[in-house]
Simulated assay, not measured.
Amino acid sequence: MRKILFIDDEANILRSLKRLFRNLEYECYYADGINEAIKIYLSLDFIDMLVTDIKMPNFDGIRLLKVFKEASPRTIRVALSGYASVDSITEAVSKNLAKQYFYKPWNNDEIISSIRKMFSLEDEFEQVDLFDKVQNFENVKTLPRLFDRINMLIQKDKSIEEICVIIEEDLAITSNILRLANSAFYQAKTGNLQQAVMYIGLNNLKQIILSYEISQMKEALIKSGESIWKHAARTNNIFYDLYEKYYKKKVPSIVGTAGLIHDIGKIIMLQIFENAYSTEVLQQDISDGQITVLERSLFKIDHAVVGGYFLNWWAFPMELIEVCMYHHRPLDEHIIHKELVAIVTLSTFIEKKEYEILGSSFLGALDILKIDLDYLKPIIEKYENE
């Protein structure tokens, strides 16, 4: 039975949590402070999940999360608070101190569902033996050559539009900003970078970018990282054209980075496996579909699963999680937003110039949208010579 430790200095909060979890499938423990929490921790062989308040009078919740990350890295850490400074939220989200953040007062169904989902995802991820690597993976690292350009614009108080033009060139920093904006603290629920920056604010954005400066990709991996970004950036442009052609309306903000974010798993795998991934996968002259087969053969997992896992972990909108998880499998029965996934699938084929292969995922996406290859020809012709 899974063990959950709840820590909060407010007695009424602990009573509410006891009522909520009383008849569920977990063995729950409750502490009103750090001393009691340590006693409980030492009395048990293992705690599966820690849910702690951020602001407590005698011991900061952020410090507690850091202690548990060091002492018990396999414990899932969750932050719970009615008030926390922006600095605290930024630290908890960006440094993987907390896998999720719930804001008081919480929604009972949402917190139960989220906890079950976290356990389920953890089980799935442990099965492919990547847990230890993920624990050490603090955030998706950005390409260092873009930092100076971004920081210079921010320091000169340029407009959000000008700043976002530069940020969008970097898949990793884009994902980190969207990740924070979609956390429970900001609750932006957007896939649009400009809206995300507006939610966070430019002053806080400066802190975020500076905090990521220490997380630079190794020079040897920069070229591989840039190739992934170029594919993602062009795919996003094609996605916009195809979406607007199909729906005859502008792309909604919540899915505004669907094409840009769909291959975030490749960036993550490049960071985790470094030269092995760059040499044995990215430098191979094979189709995008064959890449996932090769990844599973070499690393027991593919970039779509890795990317979907992290987007879910970072509380991205479900639409973007599905795009990342299923853009190679648009016919998967678990997909809710089938047409959106199909549009991204076709966009990746057009960008890679692999539409003539007529693979099963390409044909499946056409079938979902009820269109044929002729429908795509104007968009194909626009991009094939770029």
Rank of each mutant, 00 (worst) to 15 (best):
T142H: 09
Y186H: 10
F147S: 08
I163G: 03
L153K: 15
G191M: 09
K158P: 10
I238K: 02
I154V: 11
I163D: 00
D148Y: 12
K141C: 09
S227K: 14
Y212C: 02
K156H: 15
A181N: 10
E219Q: 04
E213G: 05
Y212L: 01
I209S: 06
T235S: 09
A181W: 03
Q187F: 07
I200G: 01
N151A: 00
Q216K: 09
F137T: 03
F147K: 08
I150D: 04
A220W: 00
A196C: 07
A232K: 05
E138T: 07
Q216S: 09
I177N: 02
N203C: 09
Q187N: 15
F185S: 01
H231V: 08
S183K: 05
S159P: 09
I160H: 00
N203M: 11
V197M: 11
N182H: 09
A172F: 04
Q207H: 12
I214V: 11
I200D: 04
S224P: 01
Q194W: 00
I173R: 01
L178I: 06
I163S: 05
G225S: 08
M198Q: 13
A172Q: 10
Q155D: 15
L178K: 00
L146C: 10
K218W: 00
G225W: 07
N182C: 12
F147A: 09
Y199V: 06
F137L: 12
A232Q: 02
V165P: 00
K218N: 08
I200W: 03
L205N: 05
Q155H: 14
N182L: 07
E161G: 13
Q195M: 14
Y186M: 06
N182W: 01
L143V: 15
S183W: 04
A188W: 02
E168D: 13
S159W: 13
L146E: 14
A233Y: 11
I177P: 01
Y199D: 13
S183T: 07
C164A: 12
N236Y: 02
L202N: 04
K189N: 13
E162I: 07
T142G: 11
A220T: 12
Q194R: 10
V165Q: 13
K189I: 02
Q195L: 15
A233E: 12
N139L: 10
S224Q: 11
G191I: 07
L153H: 11
F185Y: 08
L178A: 00
K223H: 11
Q195R: 11
K230Q: 15
L193A: 09
A184W: 06
T190A: 10
W229K: 08
P144A: 13
E226F: 05
T174R: 06
H231I: 07
A220C: 11
I154H: 06
Q216V: 08
V140L: 09
S183G: 12
I208M: 07
L180H: 03
M217G: 00
C164V: 02
L205A: 12
T235N: 02
T190L: 07
V165C: 12
K223G: 10
E138N: 07
L171Y: 01
N237W: 07
E213M: 11
D157P: 06
L210W: 04
A196V: 03
K206H: 11
P144E: 14
F137E: 02
H231A: 04
K230S: 14
E213P: 01
L193C: 06
E219Y: 01
I200F: 01
A233W: 03
N236D: 04
G225A: 15
Y199A: 08
Q216L: 05
K189Q: 03
M198F: 00
I238T: 06
A232G: 00
A233Q: 10
Q207Y: 10
L153C: 15
